[in-house]
Structures are given as C-alpha cells and as structure tokens.
Design a protein around this nucleic acid. Sequence first.
RNA 1: GUGGGCGUAGCUCAAUGGUAGAGCAUUCGGUUGUGGUCCGAAAGGCUGCGGGUUCGAUCCCCGUCGUCCACCCCA
Length: 424
Amino acid sequence: MKYIRESMGNDLRPVRGTRDILDEEILRFERILDATRRVSALYGFEPLSTPILEFTEVFKRTLGDASDIVTKEMYTFDDRGGESLTLRPEFTAGVARAFISNGLAQRAPIKLYSHGPLFRYERPQKGRYRQFHQINIEILGTAEPGADVEAITVGAHILDTLGILGKTKLEINSLGDSASRDAYRAALVKYFSGFKNDLSAESKIRLEKNPLRILDSKDPSDKKIVADAPALGEHYSEDAKRFFDTVQEGLTASGVAYTVNPRIVRGLDYYCHTAFEFTTDLLGAQNAVLGGGRYDGLIEQMGGPKTPAVGFAAGIERLALLLDEGKNHARPIAIIPIGAAAEKKAYALARSLRDKKIRVELGFGGNAGKRMKRAAKRNTRAAVIFGDDELASKSYKIKQFDTGKEHTVPADMLAEALSDDTGS
RNA sequence: GUGGGCGUAGCUCAAUGGUAGAGCAUUCGGUUGUGGUCCGAAAGGCUGCGGGUUCGAUCCCCGUCGUCCACCCCA
C-alpha cells in the first residue's frame, strides 16, 4: 500500500464519477438484474446487448445537436482510425440503431430489454455518476396504446418484485401527437414570452431551446408563472385524447396505480403521447427512478422504416439505494477438517456438496479454532467437522452456529442434513 | 458549467499554533478437536496535494484535487 501510494500518487483513484462496486452494493445490482430478467421474460421480452461505443452521429442525430447531453455531457473522442466515437449516454439510440442494422422490422413488434453501463460527463451527486447503469425496456413496431400499458406495467412489476414499488409513485402524462405538441409549444412560447423578465435565468434559456421544460422548473417564481400557463390537455387532438384515455383504462385494468401530472414532459422532439416517471422522495433531488415514454418518430429520424415505439429506462444505482437490507447473502456451510487425512478428504467432500447445490466455504489451513473463527466471519450457518474419529466411523459432526448445537450424522446422510436448513 | 459544506488510521470520528488519539475492523496470543463473548498485544498516519504566514502549521491564509449537497440535466 505504502509502496503503491509513493509510486503511483493519485493515479490509483478511480476516475471522477466512477467507482468500484462491491460488497452489499454489487449484490443489490445482481438482485435488480435478476428481477428484470425474470419479470421481463414473463412479458415476452428478449435480451439485447448493444455496444458501449457507437459512432457519435448515432447520438447526435437522435438526441439533437442542441440537447445538453450532446453539447456538454458526452464522452466523445476520435479513435486511431479517425472515426468520432461516443460512449453511449443512453440506451434508446443504440437499440434503435440495432433495430435498423439487424432488420428487426421484420419481426416487429419486438420487445427488447438491455442493461449495462452508460456515461455522461456530469457533476457527480447522490445517485448520479459519470459511469452509471440502467436497465432498459423497449417495445418497437407497434403504435397501439396497449404497448404503452405493457411498458408501464412491466416497469411496475419489476419495482414490485424488488419490493420498492411502494416507495415510488407513478406519474403519467400525454404529450399528444406531433400536431398537438407543436400547437402546444407555440402556445407556451407565446404565454411565457409575456413574462420574460420575471422568468429565472435558466428558464429564459429554456424558452429558446426547450419551452416545455419550463413547466418542470424548481424556481419559485417560475412556478407561479407556470401555475397559470396554458394546459397541454387543451391542445390534444381527438386521436391523442382517445389514445391517452385508452392507456389510462389499460393501466387501471392492469391494477397499476397512477396519477396524471401535466408537468411530466420529455425534452426531445421525437417523444409523443405517453410520458411517465416512477419517482421517489427518498433520494434527494434525484427523484426519478424509472422513466420513459413513446417515441414514434425516432427510428424514422435515424433513417430506418417508420416504426412507432415505446420504452423506459431505470437507474440501477438509484434502485439499489431503495432496496431493503438483507436477503443478499445466502449463508454457506463451512467444512472443518481436523488432521492430515481429513484435510485431504475435504476437497472431495466440498465438491460433492457443491454438486448438490450446497454453498460451501472450504477454509484454508490452521487449526480447528482458527478455522472456526474464519467460518464465523464468513457468515456460515453450520460447520461440518470431521477428524480421524469421524473418518473411522464414516460419519460427520455438524455444528449449527445459530444454536451452537452439534450432532453426528452418517456420511451418506450429510447432504440431506445440511440442505434441511433454510437460508441456502 | 454555477453555488455551498467537508477532507486526520481500512471505517466512523476526536484533538492542540509545539510534528496525533479513541471506537469499530484487521493480525497475533490466551485456547494444537470447536466460532460468536471476554482478556492481552501488535500493526496501521508525509493529518489529500502544493504554496504562503510563523521560530514552529494537522490547525491560520491562498491555490489545487477529491468528496458531499443543491442548481442545470436526467435514470
């Protein structure tokens, strides 16, 4: 340690906004991925893994040159061949690209789930890192409101399986179809322009770049102005209204509780109709845990066939922060051989127990006392103790750590005696 | 990118303008066929880094890096 510090200085630190994930946290990650895999399979989702690197153009074209992500948050660099590449800052663009590249339109509608690391150059904060991880769900190739219902439902189901649905609330909104959106945007710009001098500095910029986002401003004086702003609902077309109604009916029929919040908006142009967020008040300012919406225009915008789609992403770090303690560790048993003959036999015993799906800690070296100590530290539930006596009588001594009780079982009953225990 | 709090042992934190201490954790011993408790001991620190003030800085000042919180943006 000392040597390393002297020779390497600060270079041993992980890069700002990145970190090693270990112990309790990585087990939580595993639980989240496990639940996502199991639940999404129930809905017919197939796994998809796309590259972490894409041509920069993939993100520029989908997110828009002016978006914050593109202008100041992407890790973009030229590779040795002079190509401009970018570490993916989000999933949807890469999934859409893969949809086109692989001709998945042939299989539409198709349901895909992905997970993995994403990168954004942002100031790190609670539940927010420069390398972060998401699970991602997309349903591509159907314009039916039922797909929106299913996307939201599978999200709720995953949260429920993780035991954290109750810590969140679901808010939904409709942005209307593109005609409704454009009309609404114009109405908003007109309205807010009348208050230009009273808006916060950020919102003045939003007025130019992204007027919908003013609705979501946290600035107190903005909020007052927003309160009387024209409502999105007034600008829905008949179709848009019917679509939103159908989604709500579907959610109710699916037993998914929600509230309509007109302030839920998406900044990017290709979003339309449904927008939704599962939020929590347990994570400070990073209140969005899972969010998504419909993006009918995206794939066509990328140069693919006209393909309506809906999807969401959920931040694994944020989900992990909400997860309850415990249930992460399955408790193994320890094998404690005493004497040379027993020690030699321990390897085969460990293997045969592991073949029977019993988790085994095979301590290394030391006398019985030392091995017992180590076993206790490994959170084992029981120890299998055997020496010359037990070998002679073809038996094993089992010690239950929780009760401290010991009993001896014949060799051929060992696995059975151990698998009776809970917690494996 | 903007604003604020904080950087002392692996972790959580003390301390004083005179070059640092506790608890937990770690290792060893008390116990070579029995853990968790208990007792004893050891190890672990350029007090983030650089500069300044000072006879002397962990403390005061400046810078820097890191971290945390908020804004921005988002999951």
